[in-house]
Design a protein around this nucleic acid. Structure first.
Length: 579
RNA sequence: GUGCCCGUAGCUCAACGGAUAGAGCACCUGCCUUCUAAGCAGGUGGUUGCGGGUUCGAUUCCUGCCGGGCAUGCCA
């Protein structure tokens, strides 16, 4: 993943330790100082394990070293005290003022609180979903969409220059089958009696495309059904389909491409619309077909050939991917002269780097893990650094309803589409549930839970915290901008300190989540913030008579609301003012 | 067979190599005439699949088993 982050407060504290280390054990200078956030409040605000790390090298008792380090820590206005604990931990307790300061930082940063310069404006491409345009998106694509979109937003927040891209597989046999299927439905709509092959695309959406085709072109594309009555003797079903496609191409001539284009456009529009409603947007839609027509595929294969990585066998052209750690060599051009999907993938990935991206991230379904070695191998063979290609694998999502697995069959036509899921549980719950799991974890998507408008549902828990703050501010009726200057000294309860600390941690969470490609960490942190807020809210009244106390509390509540809103936005979830 | 991912509370899942492994659900007990109870406070619940190793320290890293998922096409 990406390079390590620092935050300002931690950098300040780390510098204190480095200074002390210089005084206590100059021979160990350069030892990395790490600061943890202890799980228990009694262990302070930050803990340092430096003494234990040095124990072996210095051949001294860790607690002894810790005591010496504490003696030599330079005074800091932000540190209240330092303690030795456990086997040799040094626990730092911060001054309350150092924590309260975060409220002002949040106001100053606005929507950009939590953003960082980790990425240093490096150009990153995130390619995700890239579903075949041969049918509606299903729930598996939904996870890729939610994950990829959140990952892209995270990287942008972490200071990368992000391009979101969708690769359209508009070339090849599956697309031909869709075009054929749509045309057959079109013919049927015109009363032609043509048989529909079993392994054509049978979904209702194909019938719709056929009908739209009729609306746009009338009967201009009708051909006698007889041209499709091609006898297929002793051939496999797949071969029979190819015969039908060939017959359709022959019968339609140039109009085949009219149908092809029409079906493609219809499916793309449907997918783009679906994703748009899901809050997932792209900067670039990239066409596989254009890689072929523009000669990019041919050039990429030629480059592999020139570099000596290709050989011919059984009439096909093979890439020697075993040289680069793949388990077997791979065909790039078949014996019938057609380039494989892998060939266009090579061309596409070469093109990505040629377009100037420093880092390229592919979000793939876990079933594609076998492709990693060959794609990276091809990049290496072409002279690119394969380490600059990151593959983020996303495990499958399985829907549960009433405790039972919801069956999904791809070809049967009854699979659950992303659109159906969105309509059933809503966009917010769908997006949140999708990113609530580590990407390498199988996702059990509980439809009943996602739908429940109750305390069981974690989405509402966070949104509710946001709405509560809005409600309080509305009840107050003042000008939010006036809270920016509020004195915060009276924020000193345990609940307030807890909330402040979580707000302080937020930027670090964003950086770590971006670095680890782990949007779920943001979701969990937002749950923590919401929990701390709800707890505080229940024990504290905000709209009190004393103006100083009231304004301090409202300021913290407002800061909390802003962080919840920016965090939810990163995940593609809305932050409602009212619930 | 081989490769990748996973195995943590009854269920769904967290935990930069750190301290007494945490949440939610479920199950108990309390809290609404006061800013939203879609909320809060508390309780029950664990040999982190099993065995070795590395380390001051292992749920985390290495290794061998056991169990589950996925992948192993001149498909796209």
């Amino acid at each position: 993943m990406l390079a390590a982050p620092v935050t300002d407060l931690k950098a300040h504290l780390a510098a204190l330790f480095e200074s002390a280390l210089e005084a206590v054990a100059p021979e160990a200078r350069g030892t990395a100082v790490t600061l943890d956030r202890p799980k228990q409040a009694s262990h302070g605000d930050y803990a340092c394990n430096l003494a234990m790390q040095l124990s072996r090298q210095l051949r001294r008792n860790p607690r002894e070293i810790a005591a010496a380090i504490i003696d030599h820590l330079p005074p800091s206005p932000h540190v209240a005290r330092a303690e030795i604990a456990g086997a040799g931990f040094i626990n730092l307790f911060l001054q309350p003022a150092a924590k309260r300061d975060v409220v002002r930082r949040i106001f100053a940063a606005g929507d950009r609180y939590g953003h960082s310069t980790l990425g240093q404006d490096r150009r990153v491409q995130v390619e995700f979903v890239s579903a075949n345009p041969t049918g509606p998106l299903h729930v598996g694509h939904g996870r890729g969409a939610a994950y990829g979109s959140a990952l892209a937003s995270l990287l942008a927040a972490a200071g990368f220059n992000v391009t979101r891209e969708f690769y359209v597989n508009d070339a090849g046999r599956q697309m031909d089958i869709l075009a054929l299927s749509a045309w057959l439905r079109y013919l049927q709509a015109h009363g032609e009696s043509v048989a529909f092959p079993d392994d054509g695309y049978r979904g209702d959406y194909v019938r719709d495309i056929g009908a739209q085709l009729a609306g746009a072109h009338g009967d201009r594309l009708v051909r006698p059904a007889a041209i499709l009555s091609v006898p297929v003797v002793g051939a496999a079903a797949d071969a029979a389909l190819d015969v039908l496609i060939a017959a359709a191409k022959a019968g339609l001539g140039e109009d085949w491409w009219t149908v092809h284009r029409f079906a493609l456009d219809a499916m793309l529009a449907d997918q783009r619309n679906d994703l748009g409603e899901f809050g997932v947007h792209y900067d670039v839609w990239s066409s596989e077909q254009s890689l072929h027509t523009g000669g990019a595929v041919e050039r990429a294969v030629q480059r592999l050939h020139d570099a000596g990585h290709l050989y011919r066998q059984d009439g096909a052209l093979w890439f020697r991917s075993t040289t680069f750690g793949d388990e077997k060599d791979r065909v790039v051009r078949r014996d019938n002269g057609a380039y494989t999907y892998f060939a266009s993938d090579i061309a596409y990935h070469a093109e990505k780097f040629d377009r100037g991206f420093d880092i390229v991230i592919d979000v793939w379904g876990a079933d594609h893990h076998g492709y990693i070695a060959r794609v990276k191998g091809a990049l290496q063979a072409l002279g690119y650094d394969p380490a600059r290609l990151e593959i983020a694998l996303v495990q499958f999502a399985v829907l549960f309803r009433g405790g039972e697995k919801v069956a999904m069959g791809k070809r049967s036509g009854d699979f659950v589409t992303l659109r159906e899921l969105r309509e059933e549980v809503g966009n917010d719950a769908a997006r949140f549930f999708y990113v609530l799991r580590k990407s390498d974890q199988h996702l059990d998507f509980d439809l009943d839970l996602a739908k429940s408008q109750s305390n069981d549902n974690p989405v509402y828990y966070i949104q509710y915290a946001h709405a509560r703050v809005c409600s309080v501010l509305q009840g107050w009726g003042g000008n939010e901008a006036d809270l920016a200057d509020a004195a915060l000294d009276c924020l000193d309860s345990a609940a307030e300190m807890q909330l402040l600390q979580l707000l302080i941690d937020y930027p670090e969470t964003i950086e770590a989540a971006a670095r680890d490609f782990a949007p779920h960490a943001v979701a969990f942190h937002l749950k923590d913030i919401a929990a701390a807020f709800h707890s505080w809210y229940n024990g504290t009244r905000f709209l009190v008579d004393e103006p100083a106390v009231r304004d301090a509390r409202l300021a913290l509540a407002l800061a909390t609301r802003n962080v919840l809103r920016t965090g939810l936005t990163l995940l593609g979830v809305t932050a409602p003012d009212k619930m």
